[in-house]
């Protein structure tokens, strides 16, 4: 009896601890979601109102007056485009880096992660201007690929390292070329790794602010830029800002929830192996 009671007490205490440490990470997001349905007066009301008559006015403003639908589309095009292209050039590279120990190339690709993003901006602008690519999606997609591609290579090198070499050898015995073995045997077995890598590449592109700040124009404006412009413009309408925040954060969160397993793997990859 005593033990059970104490066990229960300990359990409650422990659950409370979990709540105390976990809750702060979600509360601000819940607050943002609620604020997006509030009027300006309700938002600044203290103590915060937890129960209120929701209004859709903020979303109306975001989508109808500010054209967020278009920015949503732009962000999607750029995120999907840069992820797919990064996969296309990143996967074969990751494969040979893993199989032939091309460490120098590997290190170079990883260096891209260390560089301060701002140092790219002026050279890029000059480069893209010479190529006449400034007001196109191409330049933005290419810039986002510089974040996505190294990520994909980094994750996939680790993944390919874990696949036994015998796989390709067996395929080659069956008459496959090496590249045939890569496409028909290795890639199909790498589904989870590719999922992890591409989810992360997509998220990083989706959230990127700095590159879009300099490289995008009206036609290619992405969401992070749109929400930033929204604030400093005319007056601060906090409800609308929060609605815009929901529009931009929600897809990232939904994607994360669907691919949760892969995201965790990707973010913790490499660290655990040491």
């Amino acid at each position: 009896m005593m033990d059970e009671k104490q066990g229960l007490k300990a359990k409650i205490f422990w659950y409370l601890m979990v709540l105390m440490f976990i809750l702060p990470f979600v509360l601000p997001l819940i607050w943002i979601l609620m604020a997006s349905f509030k009027t300006q007066a309700q938002i600044v009301a203290m103590p915060p109102e937890w129960i209120f008559a929701p209004t859709l006015a903020n979303y109306k403003r975001v989508f109808i007056e500010q054209n967020f639908g278009k920015f949503l589309l732009n962000s999607s095009i750029i995120a999907v485009g840069s992820t797919v292209l990064s996969l296309i050039i990143g996967l074969p590279a990751a494969y040979t880096i893993s199989r032939y120990k091309q460490n120098i190339l590997g290190i170079f690709i990883l260096l891209a992660r260390l560089m301060p993003g701002i140092s790219y901006l002026i050279p890029w602008f000059i480069l893209f201007s010479k190529l006449r690519l400034v007001d196109t999606f191409t330049s933005l997609i290419a810039s986002h690929m510089l974040v996505g591609m190294p990520l994909i290579v980094w994750i996939m090198v680790n993944y390919f390292d874990g696949l036994p070499k015998e796989l390709e050898e067996a395929a080659q015995v069956d008459g496959c070329t090496l590249q045939g073995a890569f496409f028909r045997v290795v890639l199909p077995l790498s589904g989870p790794g590719i999922m992890t890598a591409s989810t992360l590449a997509f998220l990083f592109s989706w959230n990127n602010f700095m590159f879009s700040l300099v490289l995008s124009v009206e036609q290619t404006k992405t969401l992070p830029l749109a929400i930033y412009g929204f604030v400093s413009y005319a007056e601060v309408s906090w409800g609308s800002v929060m609605a815009a925040a929901v529009v931009i954060i929600a897809p990232a969160i939904i994607l994360t929830m669907i691919f949760q397993r892969y995201v965790i793997k990707g973010l913790t990859m490499g660290a655990v192996k040491g």
């Binding site: 601000p28 938002i43 959230n207 992070p224 925040a245 994360t256 995201v263």
Partner: peptide
């Protein structure tokens, strides 16, 4: 899942919310 959310939420939007 909850732990993942702050990491993937767009920093610009998060910055604005915290400003408020």
């Amino acid at each position: 899942t909850i732990l993942l959310l702050p990491m993937v939420a767009t920093p610009v939007a998060i910055g604005l919310a915290w400003t408020l």
